[in-house]
Structures are given as structure tokens and as C-alpha cells.
Computed example of a mutant assay.
Amino acid sequence: MAFAGKYEFEGDENYDAFVQKIGLPSEKIEMGRNCKIVTEVVQNGNDFTWTQHFPGGRTTTNTFTVGKEADMETFGGKKFQATVKLEDGKLVAEFPNYRHTAEISGGKLVEISTSSGVVYKRTSKKIA
């Protein structure tokens, strides 16, 4: 379960259908389309700092410990509390209206978010 590193957006699938399903406002939908997000993961055992750097200088950081409740923020900017779990080598979090998983597969960060049967997949390549 080694997630530590810096990852740059490589591609995604079903972005539009997913963000419409979770009710993201149209201006945020446009901002996020093909956005070259850089995800930086700092890991110390079960403690994580997960930061997403967006073009223009905006960042979102979630700090959590696997198995403990933590304050989190969605990519739409909503704050909530969740407990991140580890299931079959994947980090799993239940966001307010979607389920999010993250795993390292083939040296890439693969994130999958699911809401009411709509699946969004984002793949990022390791850059550091």
C-alpha cells in the first residue's frame, strides 16, 4: 500500500456524466474538464496527506488516518466527515453522494468515483 508520490493527470472516463450526477455547478464542471491536476500523496504508515493542485494555484488537501474519522472536502468544495478504509489494497471513502476508491496500479494512481451507477475513472502518472 505505497501511495506516496506526486502524480499528474493522464486521462479520465465519464467525467461529464459523473459530475452532472453529483450536481456539480456548470462553472465547476468546465473548470475540471481535462484539468491537469497534480495529486501529491504524503504517507506515513496509515497517516495520509492527500493534496490536489489545480491550475491557477487552487489546492484541496485532505489529511486522514486509515480507520479514523476525519474532516474531508469534496472536489466540489463541500466539507464533510468520513472514515477512509483500506479494502484489498485500495483506499475507500464514502463521500456525501459518491463512493471514492484510490489504488496504485501499474505504477499509476487510479481513482474511481461511483454515484448511482455512474462510474468516473481518473488515471494519473507518477512524476516524482
Rank of each mutant, 00 (worst) to 15 (best):
G23L: 10
K121T: 15
G77W: 13
N46L: 01
S26W: 15
A93L: 07
G45C: 09
V66D: 02
F48Q: 05
F75K: 00
N44A: 12
C35S: 12
K90F: 11
S105C: 08
V66Y: 05
L109E: 05
G57S: 08
G77K: 02
E10P: 00
K126L: 07
F9Y: 15
S116G: 09
D47I: 04
V38R: 01
D16E: 15
F9M: 12
V19K: 04
G32N: 08
K21E: 13
K85Q: 14
T123I: 14
S115H: 06
V110C: 08
F48Y: 14
M1C: 08
K126N: 02
F48A: 02
K28N: 13
M72N: 08
H53L: 10
V84Q: 00
F54T: 02
K21H: 08
T123H: 05
Y15S: 06
M31C: 06
L24N: 11
A93G: 03
L109W: 05
N44Y: 02
Y7L: 01
E8T: 15
G11D: 01
A2R: 14
I29W: 04
V66A: 01
N62T: 01
E10Y: 10
I127N: 02
R99L: 15
T60Y: 00
F54Y: 11
S115Y: 01
E27D: 14
D88I: 07
T123Q: 01
N34I: 03
P25T: 08
T114M: 10
I112T: 15
